[in-house]
Design a protein around this nucleic acid. Structure first.
Length: 560
RNA sequence: GCGCCUGUAGCUCAAUGGAUAGAGCGUUGGUCUACGGAACCAAAGGUUACAGGUUCGAGUCCUGUCAGGCGCGCCA
């Protein structure tokens, strides 16, 4: 990081000095210093010359040459070995010394904190995710949202944010009553009564199972129980299932927030009052409307229906008022993409209360479809047939499910082919990554067996590491903090699996060199100093693999 | 009809406006009695859906077209 800043300042100085007085020169912080994409391009590259071509009315290559010449005139710092100008105007920079391993010592010192920023340096953030009403077991779509949400939390925490994980649900609305009626009907059916099942009831087998359990527990005693009994009975048990599934994936929440509490606390009324005071609501046709069109919505939305019932939107606006009141500086809602149409009106509600639209970010997670035997399995809680998250967890385990759910951008829908997942599971990229980690652990065990003691980074001479595989690996390890930065800035967990796979491949290639060339082996009893240097690389790799896997909530086994 | 997302190798997907578009799986050929082979090396495979535009430079940004998914309620 420091090198980068120094380079920015150096190039900025050169630009000012060479083109003194010209308008439109970039500021120091805007000079892009990027890690070179290939070894032949040095350590860093800069593209300022291309960007300035039109401003300076000169060919970019000439500008680049001028800048480099200016640096030399000013006296090129010792820590820069070489600066090249390459068509059409890249400035490629080589650092002196063995930059490939510049980060290694720091990584060893920082250990599990490598890639993390100090707590409290980021915004206080509330992440709301899953938020499924307890009307049925979680399906794979919920699973994707759950994994992405949890990974985003872990990534933001690594970025210095104080994060609260929250699950918002409604245990008292229409859907819950519907669930209660569904259980009641199944219960009576289980008792042998000939009753009709509600048309809009929950048709899944799990309601039948609940009815059977209830029959075993209570016999016929609940035949005339109130609807509320069935609603509470069903939702309590379903919430337990949900909790178990989430725990099985390593996901825990700090707060389970009930919609009903917003009514109890008076915040719903408070929100309505504030909207009225701000003249953001109005009455028409017997209903109360939100002026959401003022904030880009295509039509105004109803807050209170003409029958006096509030719409879903009203408590949700109150909920976000509550989030702000609790002192959060940022709210993130992980939503299923089928709810994307709702975002504009919710943001409108927040803005109508006077908050910035930036307060809330709503990444929407694209649908997951599931294929079995080449046929799509429909995912519908009410339709009855679905693949549950639990089935997936039982079949593949939490690590695999988490990896797959996080490995690609949530902007893309994806098809989870159960047969394919099973067939290829042994060649799963995750196993390659975990195997690489196990290998690093084993190398250290092996070293001890051979009487080699890892003596820490201080004793290491990195000049001894001359293999191209070693340098590539060293550079890749140094890039980790940038990967975390980007994952946090873009709320994009999928950066991490890609990076992990790259590390695993680099390490496997390095390791394999030793198969054909004994001098390239990591453990060399005949060359203790070289072995120490190589072990340093292994220790650092192990650390970075652990740190990155930790951000995904995936285990780093020492043996497989 | 309007809105959101997507379209990249046979398949599943990466790629911060930068240099010759990359991985995994699959296919083909090779390495190997090993510091754990759950490995490695190599090859084949691309008009980045199509057509324009913006600029030094576009898979990436803009416009249009086509295709797939989702959403468009005084439902949640």
């Amino acid at each position: 990081m420091e090198t980068k800043t120094a380079l920015q300042e150096l190039l900025h100085q050169a630009l000012i000095s060479a083109f003194n007085g010209v308008d439109g020169l970039p500021e120091t912080k805007d000079i892009a210093i990027k890690p070179a994409s290939k070894a032949e391009f040095g350590d860093f590259s800069n593209t300022s010359a291309m960007g300035l071509a039109s401003t300076l009315r000169q060919p970019p290559i000439k500008i680049a040459q001028t800048v480099v010449a200016e640096v030399e005139k000013m006296g090129c710092p010792k820590w820069i070995k070489r600066m090249d100008v390459v068509s059409p105007g890249f400035i490629n920079i080589w650092l002196a010394g063995d930059s490939a391993f510049g980060a290694v010592k720091a990584i060893i010192e920082q250990g599990e904190n490598y890639g993390r920023k100090p707590a409290g340096t980021g915004r206080r953030t509330l992440v709301e995710f899953v938020s499924a009403n307890p009307t049925g077991p979680l399906h794979v779509g919920h699973g994707r949202g759950a994994v992405v949400g949890d990974c985003i939390c872990r990534i933001l925490e690594a970025n210095g944010c104080e994060v609260t994980r929250e699950y918002y649900y409604n245990n008292a609305g229409v859907q819950m009553k519907n669930l209660g009626r569904s259980l009641h009907a199944r219960y009576l059916q289980a008792l042998g009564d000939d009753v009709e099942f509600p048309d809009d009831g929950y048709k899944g087998d799990y309601v039948r199972e609940l009815a059977e359990t209830l029959k075993e527990e209570a016999g016929e005693s609940k035949r005339d129980a109130k609807l509320e009994f069935f609603t509470v009975y069903a939702s309590d048990r379903i919430m337990q299932w949900i909790d178990e599934d989430l725990k099985a994936m390593g996901i825990t929440f700090d707060v389970f927030f009930k919609e009903s509490s917003l009514y109890e606390s008076g915040e719903v009324e408070e929100a309505l009052k504030q909207l009225a005071e701000r003249e953001m609501s109005y009455k028409q046709d017997g209903a109360l409307w939100l002026k959401s069109t003022q904030f880009g919505d295509e039509k105004d939305r109803v807050l209170i229906k003409s029958d006096g019932e509030k719409t879903y939107l009203t408590p949700d606006i109150a909920y976000h008022l509550d989030k702000a009141r609790r002192g959060f500086e940022r709210a993130i809602n992980i939503l299923g993409h089928d709810h994307h149409g709702y975002i504009v009106r919710l943001k409108a509600g927040i803005q109508a209360l006077g908050f910035s639209a930036d307060f809330l970010d709503c990444p929407t997670i694209q649908m997951v479809s599931v294929e079995r035997d080449g046929k799509e399995v429909k995912l519908s809680t009410r339709g009855g047939e679905f693949i549950t998250l639990k089935e997936l967890l039982d079949e593949f385990g939490a690590d695999v499910v988490r990896y797959f759910m996080a490995m690609r951008s949530y902007d893309s829908q994806f098809t989870f082919d159960l047969n394919l997942a099973q067939d290829t599971s042994e060649k799963n990229p995750l196993y390659k990554i975990q195997y690489a980690h196990a290998r690093t652990c084993n190398l250290l065990v092996k070293a001890k067996e051979q009487g080699i003691e890892w003596q820490g980074a201080d004793a290491v001479d990195f000049e001894l590491l001359q293999l191209s595989e070693e340098k590539e690996l060293g550079k890749a390890l140094a890039r980790y903090p940038e990967i975390v930065d980007r994952a946090a800035a873009e709320l994009a967990p999928h950066c991490l699996p890609n990076y992990l796979l790259e590390l695993a491949n680099l390490f496997n290639s390095y390791f394999a060199v030793g198969n054909n060339d004994a001098s390239a082996r990591i453990l060399r009893v005949d060359a203790p100093e070289l072995t120490q240097a190589r072990l340093a690389l292994v220790v650092v790799l192990r650390q970075v693999l652990r740190n990155a896997l930790g951000l995904l909530g995936i285990s780093a086994p020492e043996r497989m």
